[in-house]
Simulated scan of single mutants.
Amino acid sequence: MINFLKGQPSSDLLPVELFAKATASALAEPDAKVDMLQYGDELGTVEFRDNLASFLTKEYSMAVESRHLCPTSGASFGLQHALSLLTRPNSVTKYCYFQEPTYFLAFDIFRDVGYELDQFVGVPDTQNQGLDVGYFETMLAKHFPVPPPAPSNDNDSLVYSSVLYCVPTYANPTGSILPESQRQRLVQLARKYNVLVVCDDVYDILTFAGQGATTNHSNGDHTNQTSSSPPPPPKRVVAYDLELDSAHPVVISNGSFSKLLAPGCRVGWLECHEKLVQRLGAW
Rank of each mutant, 00 (worst) to 15 (best):
N194Q: 08
N194M: 02
N194F: 01
V197G: 03
V198I: 13
C199D: 06
C199E: 12
D201T: 15
D201G: 07
D201K: 15
D201R: 15
D201N: 15
V202P: 06
V202M: 14
Y203W: 07
D204I: 15
I205G: 08
I205D: 14
I205H: 09
L206C: 13
L206T: 10
L206E: 05
T207N: 11
T207W: 00
F208G: 12
F208S: 15
A209K: 11
A209T: 14
Q211S: 12
Q211I: 14
Q211R: 14
Q211P: 02
G212Q: 06
G212M: 06
G212R: 08
G212S: 01
G212K: 11
G212N: 05
A213T: 09
A213F: 08
T214H: 14
T214V: 09
T214A: 11
T215K: 02
T215L: 10
T215Y: 06
N216E: 10
N216C: 11
N216Q: 09
N216I: 07
H217I: 06
S218N: 09
S218T: 10
N219F: 05
D221N: 08
H222V: 15
H222L: 14
H222S: 08
H222D: 15
N224H: 02
Q225A: 05
T226G: 06
T226K: 15
S227D: 10
S227R: 13
S228G: 09
S228W: 04
S228N: 10
P230F: 08
P230C: 07
P231R: 13
P232K: 12
P233L: 14
P233Y: 05
P233E: 12
K235D: 00
K235F: 00
R236I: 08
V238W: 02
A239I: 09
Y240T: 06
Y240N: 06
D241Q: 05
D241A: 01
D241N: 06
E243S: 13
L244G: 04
D245T: 03
S246F: 00
S246R: 03
A247T: 08
A247S: 09
A247C: 04
H248D: 03
H248N: 07
H248A: 01
P249S: 04
P249I: 03
V250R: 01
I252N: 02
S253W: 03
S256L: 03
S258N: 09
S258D: 06
K259A: 12
L260N: 06
L260W: 04
L260I: 15
L261N: 05
A262Q: 06
P263W: 03
G264P: 01
G264R: 14
G264W: 13
C265N: 13
C265P: 04
C265I: 14
R266Q: 11
R266T: 08
V267I: 15
V267P: 01
G268Y: 02
G268R: 01
E271L: 13
E271F: 14
E271Q: 14
E271G: 07
E271K: 15
C272S: 09
C272N: 04
C272T: 12
C272M: 08
C272Y: 02
H273C: 02
H273V: 01
E274C: 07
L276F: 03
L276Q: 04
L276H: 03
V277C: 07
Q278I: 01
Q278M: 06
R279K: 10
L280M: 05
L280G: 00
